[in-house]
Design a protein around this nucleic acid. Structure first.
Lengths: 305, 305
DNA sequence: AGCTTGTGATGCAAAAAATGCATCGTGATA
DNA sequence: TATCACGATGCATTTTTTGCATCACAAGCT
């Protein structure tokens, strides 16, 4: 949209922290960019940036204005895709930000199913930790965030929540594999593979460890759940996981045993689906969000609110 | 704001229903206007107007886009006044749309009090019936609406609600003046002054009349509550009113008697304070809204939700 | 039927705005 | 102290926008 160019420029300058860099990225000269910024500041009657010798930085007014700009741009895109909808086909783009929990097992299936119904819709899945996921909502980098075990600020709207008990994962021939539930002290005797990415699980576990003074024998910290899951077939070790990350249909988890930790040792985590408050999602994103919520209700009927 | 000119143009054209008229109002030539419209339609990839020999009219895409435009313009103004706030003084403009209920007695006091705290804030009070009040919110003509006894569509957000029992108003020396409550049949013997503007009261009363088959003897229908109130000092007649319309401090109602109608004969009406959903109000409007809600809580502590 | 009136669209020239180049002044940095 | 990268500015150039004159079309009126 042509009339939004100046706004986009401001957004980029804010992100780059320098007019010249922003100009380069925008493929225009710094002069033109500089002039646009000056002009709009003049028009607003208040500067948006603080000029430092090493670049520019948003001042308070600028922060307000940039937030507004991102809102506007999102909203334009929403309306434009709504207008495209009028011509028949549902098009659109959905941007989801999530931690590792749902990326490998849960989301792919959901996206595939949605795209089967609406092939015109494209997706963008960003792997973020909780804090970054929230930021990405606020900065309009993503439409929907899936956040595990994190307190959310008041400008985030929680659409749905599902509780997730941490499970202990092991090979099916592991000595503990026939138990119904496990205490944390049962794990002391075994080597532990600790997930690195999912800070939520670590936090939940560490609370239990400190309370019970049960130091786990961590032998490997790893990014990849699959790597750890595969490792379990070679040594009688243990790792941790939440149900949504375990794809029941096939894959490695199908050949492993998952046993919930006793709730006295490890609290259940909360998995939120969230969006930015006071924001109207594009049709595609809203529909996909509906599907996610519906699915959580189906898979975890007891744990969803 | 310069970058919004095209958007404003579209808005005006939509309102005028003709490019040439809109051009005149905007003090530009129809050529320039026409070209801007064509250009943005080109950019969107979809026409916004239907061309008829007698002018233009928004099509579906246009309706969507114009709604979006009004949103944007409101939002820009909000942010701009927020930025002005940074320089110290609170400035701003609050637009309220209300029926007759609150205009004469309630609102003036509230506005005066608010302006004492923030002299830079200006007000616009529009007298509308419920339907128009809702429309004015949707079209961004007003920020806050006060609506009596009307069902609100789903894109309107109810901020607060207070129940209002219809009262029968009479001179202090009226034979009925010493009763605690009155039945509708008590009124049959007396001439009735029926408020014309406040359709809410009429609806509430007519339900009672039909159920009880009690045809009231309406001798005067009038727009002005004050006129009717004054009339009561000359003839032993009755009129109807809700508490918020009666200024207790001084004025004519101070010299009259108000007795609630028995709830079996006339249901209590609901007075809503409402705004457009998914809209962030400008600081001034939001603060004033807070004040209104607070005040309703103070005056009608039992009836507010 | 013919005329008038009002509508939006378009070719072309003039006016206005945005852009790019060269350059300045200014703090931070080595 | 020299250098560097930054944002600001004067001036010529390019691009965009505007206004005038005019067209094509449909409706209402005589």
């Amino acid at each position: 949209m042509r009339y939004l160019t100046t706004l986009k420029y401001i957004d980029i300058v804010a992100k780059e922290g320098s007019m010249r860099k922003a100009a380069e990225r925008l493929a225009i000269t710094s002069t033109a960019l500089n002039r646009r910024i000056l002009a709009i500041e003049e028009e607003i009657g208040h500067p948006l940036f603080e000029r430092t010798p090493s670049g520019v930085q948003l001042n308070t007014a600028g922060e307000l204005f940039v937030q507004h700009i991102r809102n506007q741009i999102s909203d334009v895109n929403r309306v434009l895709s709504q207008i495209s909808d009028l011509s028949g086909i549902r098009r659109g783009h959905v941007r989801i930000s999530s931690g590792a929990q749902t990326i490998s097992a849960f989301l792919p299936k959901e996206i595939a199913e949605y795209r089967q119904k609406h092939p015109g819709v494209t997706f963008e899945v960003l792997r973020h930790n909780s804090k970054r996921a929230v930021e990405s909502l606020v900065s309009h980098e993503s439409d929907i965030a899936i956040i595990f075990d994190s307190i959310l600020p008041s400008d985030i709207h929680i659409v749905a929540t599902v509780t997730q008990a941490v499970h202990i994962i092991m090979a099916p021939d592991h000595p503990l594999a026939n138990k119904k539930t496990l205490r944390l002290q049962d794990c002391l005797a075994w080597p532990i593979l600790m997930p690195r990415e999912n800070e939520g699980i670590r936090t939940l576990l560490s609370v239990g460890q400190i309370q019970k003074a049960t130091p786990l024998q961590t032998i490997i910290e790893a990014d990849s759940f699959d790597m750890m899951a595969n490792y379990l077939t070679y040594e009688h070790a243990l790792t941790f996981q939440i149900p949504i990350s375990m794809n029941s249909q096939d894959g490695i988890y199908h050949r492993l045993k998952a046993i919930p930790i006793d709730h006295r040792d490890c609290a259940r985590g909360l998995l939120h689906i969230a969006q930015l408050k006071a924001r109207v999602l594009p049709v595609a994103a809203a529909k996909f969000q509906d599907q996610l919520v519906q699915r959580l209700n189906d898979i975890f009927p007891e744990e969803t609110r």
